[in-house]
Write a protein that binds this DNA or RNA. Structure first.
Length: 640
RNA sequence: GCUGGCGUAGCUCAAUCGGCAGAGCAGCGGUUUUGUAAACCGCAGGUUGGGGGUUCGAGUCCCUUCGCCAGCUCCA
């Protein structure tokens, strides 16, 4: 009998008869491991424990301590879900059921949507399936056998028909349920213990809006009870932080049915936007040129830029009364207007890189179902910038922009991950141009030394890009910043600069945004800080509270002193009790409250109450407080 | 845009089977002058998102439309 040599994670080599299963190896290593084992990694590939090993390979037995095993668990949880649904709805068609971040889902073809009561019932049956501890049995079948097994399910038959002839078709059984599936799975359904179904929703078969709508059930599954509870707690916490709720409670913005996708910023929200804007303007003071351009353009511009062909459904077209045609449009992007400005003058290589920034209002006609709070609106402002530069300047500029963007996020305590997005299906420009652009941007990105992920096909229609994704409190990631390299528009707009050799050359354009849009950035900040903004950003920075009317004048004087120093301070006097006013300040997340009573007046001081710190007050002079607050504001400290 | 759910006072939510639209908070008026998270009393607040229908009678049932929410699609 031949043997195979298996290298364990600790480097030791174990020789076992060819065909030994992962389960048997785990048992040989130790009974504890055998009990804990969930799957095995063989030469980098995760497999069922029950599969025989036929070749020499590095292996690792996976237990609930491995992140990869969690994915296997969740995939198996999806199968248990399908098992339960099939038991309750034997006619249900079975779509796809993959693991996803924090959980899993499965799509079913059923005549009516699942209700919350249905989900409870299904979850109950899932617990029965888990209790029965059915083993997950893997089998390789040929095409005819697969077609026979899934003869009653058109969705599965469609999937089978797409498998290539050289692909191994595998099916998995757990008790009464059989699914077409690549695997791998946990050894048996009993290993699934801590899970919960969360919601149901419609989802198109294969994500295609022209195909039928299936009913998707989302669920979450974990190895430990605490992990499940922690996850459910995080979901609850996320709901509390939802920027739509917090934004209303803190009176930052509102919506009105008369302008779906349009934001009404209150004075408080406007103050925050302006504060962020000032910060950006300060950062860009030296090397950037801030410009303003029109909002409305003739379609001739969009024909040159390619928007008319590729982006028209997202543009608000405006009727021209003279021509009776919709041949004007509100701008959905700033780039073409910057190109027009660039071309209005002749440029020397000495002027490059030339950086135009703009905070103009943009309009995009999003389909109604896409609108969502501040994160998806129809009118918004980007902190937009277009950089005109020479080919040879790309790497340095990308480095500089990356540093800039990451430093900016750091000010807010946000961390980002980088994504490199390449040419999309719908695009302008020939492949040679794309090759050059992708090559140049990738080289520049790698020169920064930052880790990044690849997002193939996710580039802009005119060029590849580096996206900066920032995670919000719910764990959703949002694309905020972006660096897009564009070789197309310089051609389309026939841009030129005069080089050192006194002949004309083609510049390259970099599109850059940092916050993405102020609207979306505000949504993320609100959820990130749960409304408790750092001092420099808070719409109301300080609230001054006299204990009674007797101290009102003194408190008013303190307020004026703060305001004269440029601090956003308000006086909270009146007939309400001190307790009431303190509570109101805490509820509105005012960073600092200054209590002024007779004791303070006598010593020319204030009693500082820090947001969230309870009544651990500190008494200091007004000038001491002023110095402290101004310093925190100036340094944009993440306090209190 | 698609599928489903939901729209009751500024906000959060009640209103049994189709049978008098209500509460708390916020607001306004008064009393209270307060030492670190809600003083007390009173008043006002509504074409139940809009339109149409069924019914003796509609917040409740049906149709339609607008908006919001979740997901899909899309995306800053």
């Amino acid at each position: 009998m031949s043997v195979v040599k298996l290298t364990l994670p600790d480097g030791s080599v174990r020789e076992v008869p060819k065909g030994t299963t992962g389960q048997e190896i785990a048992r040989q290593i130790g009974p504890g491991l055998a009990r804990a084992a969930l799957a095995i990694r063989v030469d980098g590939q995760i497999r069922d424990l029950s599969r025989p090993i036929e070749e020499d390979a590095p292996i690792a037995i996976l237990t609930d301590r491995d992140e990869a095993a969690l994915e296997v668990l969740r995939h198996s949880a999806a199968h248990v879900l399908a098992t339960a649904v099939r038991q309750l709805y034997p006619q249900a068609g079975i779509g796809f059921g993959p693991p996803i971040e924090d959980g899993f889902y499965y799509d079913f073809d059923v005549p009516r949507p699942f209700t919350p009561e249905d989900l409870e019932q299904i979850e109950g049956v899932m617990r029965e399936v888990a209790a029965k501890d059915y083993p997950f049995l893997r089998a390789e079948v040929d095409r005819a056998e697969a077609n026979r097994r899934f003869a009653d399910d058109p969705l599965k038959l469609e999937r089978i028909s797409e498998l290539k002839d050289d692909e191994t078709i595998t099916v998995y059984e757990d008790g009464p349920f059989t699914d077409l599936c690549r695997g791998p799975h946990i050894p048996s359904t009993g290993r699934l213990k801590h899970f919960k179904l969360l919601s149901g929703a419609g989802a198109y078969w294969r994500g295609d809006e022209k195909r039928q709508m299936l009913q998707r059930i989302y669920g979450t599954a974990w190895f430990k009870k605490e992990d499940l509870e922690g996850h459910l707690h995080r979901l609850e916490e996320s709901r509390k932080r939802d920027h739509r709720r917090v934004g209303r409670e803190l009176d930052l913005f509102l919506f009105h049915p008369f302008s779906p996708g349009g934001v009404f910023w209150t004075d408080r929200g406007t103050t925050m936007i302006n504060t962020i804007n000032q910060y950006l303007q300060e950062l860009q003071r030296d090397d950037y040129r801030e410009v303003k351009t029109p909002l409305l353009y003739n379609k001739a511009l969009w024909e040159i830029s390619g928007h008319w062909g590729k982006y028209r459904e997202n543009m608000f077209l405006v009727l021209d009364n003279e021509t009776g045609e919709h041949d004007m449009s509100l701008k959905p992007m700033n780039c073409p207007s910057h190109y027009l400005m660039y071309n209005a003058k002749k440029h020397s290589y000495r002027d490059l890189p030339l950086r135009f920034t703009t905070y103009d209002v943009l309009h995009r006609n999003e389909i109604s179902g896409a609108l969502s709070g501040l994160t998806r609106v129809r009118q918004f402002q980007q902190d937009d910038c277009h950089i005109f530069l020479m080919q040879s300047q790309i790497a340095e500029e990308v480095q500089r922009l990356t540093d800039f963007i990451l430093a900016y996020y750091k000010t807010f305590g946000l961390t980002a991950t980088l994504k490199f997005a390449t040419r999309p299906e719908v695009r302008v420009g020939d492949d040679a141009l794309w090759d050059r652009a992708e090559g140049a941007l990738k080289a520049a990105l790698e020169a920064t030394g930052m880790p990044y992920q690849l997002k193939p096909g996710d580039g802009a229609f005119y060029g590849p890009k580096i996206d900066f994704d920032v995670a919000d409190s719910i764990g959703r990631t949002w694309q905020l910043g972006t660096i897009q390299l564009d070789y197309n528009n310089p051609e389309r707009f026939d841009m030129k600069y005069v080089g050192e050799d006194n002949t004309e050359h083609r510049p390259v354009v970099i599109h850059r945004a940092v916050s993405g849009s102020f609207e979306r950035f505000m949504a993320i900040l609100i959820e990130h800080f749960a409304g408790a903004f750092p001092l420099w950003l808070a719409p109301e920075q300080v609230r001054v509270l006299p204990i009674s009317d007797a101290q009102a004048d003194a408190a008013r004087l303190v307020t004026s002193r703060l305001r004269d120093a440029g601090i956003r301070a308000h006086l909270s006097a009146g007939h309400e009790t001190l307790n009431y006013r303190i509570r109101d300040g805490e509820v509105h997340k005012v960073p600092y409250m200054l209590v002024v009573g007779q004791r303070e007046i006598d010593t020319d001081s204030v009693a500082l109450r820090v947001r969230g710190a309870g009544n651990k007050q500190e008494v200091m002079s007004v000038s001491e407080f002023l110095a402290k607050a101004l310093h925190e504001i100036k340094t944009r400290a993440l306090v209190p």
